[in-house]
Design a protein around this nucleic acid. Sequence first.
DNA 1: CTAGGATCCTGTCAGC
DNA 2: TGCTGACAGGATCCTA
Length: 286
Amino acid sequence: MPELPEVETIRRGLQKCVVKEKGGKVIRVEILEKKSFIGESSMIVGASIRTLRRRGKALIFDFTNGTSIICHLRMTGQLIWTSSEERFAGGHPNDNFIAELPNKQTRIVIGFERGTLFFNDQRKFGFMRALKTEDVENDSFIRRLAKEPWEMSGEELFAKLQRHKGAPVKSVILDQSIIAGLGNIYADETLFYAKINPKRKAGNVSRDEADALIEGARVVMDRSLEAGGSTIRNYVKSDGTKGDYLELFAKVFNRQGKKCERCGAIILKTRVGGRGTHFCPVCQKQ
DNA sequence: CTAGGATCCTGTCAGC
DNA sequence: TGCTGACAGGATCCTA
């Protein structure tokens, strides 16, 4: 679930409350679900967070003692910081954003001097991994990541699409070793922006369309970042009701049955590479 | 090498 | 009110 903009929103949000003296040193690490934590949790006890980085959809906590935590939220992960004066929640938007913690879905609790960081994850696909900072680049997930859309040219993407010419273009742009950061929402939104049908073979995508894909990926993710990804602030609307942050920017995702904002046709939902896929049958012809 | 399908896990929702 | 099956914003592993 959380894609690049959500993870970046979390990075920015936590930067303001948990880094260095704001959060202070780690007092304890409580692992409530063994498979959610890889490595030795005692590595970070006594250290504070020096910086927060992001690579694709992975968040990296660098600690003052030369250790790091790589955190991947996968489908349903959330990070929630609580202290006496504030609460920041981001990731998979559900009621844990505002629930009492820890709870049934809490997998890891990291207690700091001045607050607590909860890692919640309904489906247990996400994880935290403790390792030396110098080993982060060698991590099996980090190592395989391609460039993000802002660093990649249309020419580079075009070449990569050619190498997977038989696969549907949507499946190819979801591959983090092809281009980093896109998940199911932004893949659909990017293809809508570029007016490309998600089922088209990657090999049929033209050089110009590859440019449009790069531009689309940048635009849709920038737009989501402005909206703040999925965080507590847009989960709870100003009138107190719970919201769907997708309303803020999605043109096709979860809009099946509704009108295309560009041409008025009805948005359809289908299945591509095993994933639910939303598109406009008129703007994105086969 | 590529492409496609199964798999990890819990929860929710539609349909009977 | 159950029960059942499909599906969920991800990535990896296995097979052909």
